[in-house]
């Protein structure tokens, strides 16, 4: 009887040394210390991102009645999102505009990134800063600047008129999907240059030398070595422009006109004038899902193609 109590007390150390042991174990465990350090950041991101997402999904299954929500579960908003021709048309148009913008911006920016990566040897940093600085000026004012350029009495029209090339201003320049593409391409250029530049800069120069030594000409060397190796940058650049621009409502509102209105304008209206939040939430989720599916497909496809070429 007596012996067992002694044994038990020896096996179970006092709370104080338990705490010490735990602390020592904690100090030795990298993972725990890492998690502790990470926890504030994760907590904040979770609270401000994952929880709102959850609530948005919930609300998208409700219905709006006046200023109140009818909280009975319904799929009506999603049904309407699919059936209404206007919603479908706007979503398709947004995807077309953002897709065109992403492709154009990447194509136009690739040679620029290439130049800085391979042909600039002095003051590389200055070039990079020069390319990124306009990006940090007011987005609204940059978009507005294009209104000034493309407008009825804008830079292009008054310039052409001054040269005597046209008599009446070209009305189609502003308020069109083209105007939205140009403006977005200008506004998001930095997001194309930087990822492409970084992936080009990482390429081991000896690979290029090897290709040359083995008899590849400049074109074959570019297609066989440089381009495949810079594909991660190209993919990142395309997505970093495509994804956010689908959700832009500022540019379409300022330079798009009725033909350039995008899905985000509609979503914004649901939370403003139209005042149908559940519909707006459903449209936002529709948009997010479509964008995510397209992005994943794009990543998968480009990977397959690069693998085949390389």
């Amino acid at each position: 009887m007596n012996e067992t109590t002694i044994e038990v007390s020896a096996l179970a150390p006092s709370p104080k040394s338990w705490g010490r042991r735990l602390y020592a174990w904690y100090l030795r465990s990298d993972a725990l210390k890492g998690f502790t350090l990470l926890s504030p950041t994760l907590l904040v991101m979770g609270l401000t991102m994952l929880i709102p997402f959850g609530i948005m999904v919930t609300i998208s299954f409700w219905a709006q009645i006046g200023f109140e929500f009818d909280t009975t579960f319904t799929l009506a908003n999603y049904g309407e999102g699919v059936e209404q021709p206007l919603y479908r048309a706007l979503l398709l148009r947004s995807l077309a505009i953002s897709g065109t913008c992403a492709v154009v911006t990447v194509l136009v920016s690739y040679p620029m990134a290439y130049y800085v990566a391979f042909h600039v040897h002095k003051h590389k940093m200055t070039w990079i800063i020069l390319m990124t600085v306009p990006f940090f000026t007011s987005y609204l004012l940059r978009v507005f600047a294009w209104k000034v350029i493309l407008g009825y009495n804008g830079v292009i029209n008054s310039g052409l008129k001054g040269l005597g090339l046209i008599e009446e201003p070209l009305a189609f320049l502003l308020y069109s999907p083209t105007a939205v593409v140009i403006t977005l391409a200008h506004a998001w250029a930095a997001f194309a240059i930087l990822p492409i530049y970084i992936s080009l800069e990482k390429i081991d120069r000896s690979l290029l030398e090897a290709a040359t030594d083995l008899g590849d000409g400049p074109v074959k060397r570019f297609l066989g070595v440089t381009l495949p190796l810079s594909m991660p940058g190209v993919i990142a650049a395309t997505l970093m422009i495509f994804i956010p621009t689908v959700g832009d409502y500022v540019t379409p509102a300022l330079v798009g006109g009725p033909d350039g209105i995008m899905i985000a304008n509609l979503i914004q209206a649901q939370f403003g004038l139209v005042n149908n939040w559940p519909m707006g939430a459903a449209l936002a989720i529709d948009m997010m899902v479509v964008v995510a599916v397209i992005s994943l497909l794009y990543i998968w496809l480009t990977r397959k193609i690069t693998e085949k070429i390389a």
Binding site: L42, M56, I59, M240
Partner: peptide, 21 residues
């Protein structure tokens, strides 16, 4: 990936979600 997620989610979606919350 979770921490970097806001970089690849359209701002309008996070804005709307926060507004609802």
């Amino acid at each position: 990936f979770v921490i970097m997620l806001p970089m690849v989610v359209p701002y309008i979606i996070m804005g709307v979600a926060l507004l609802i919350l």
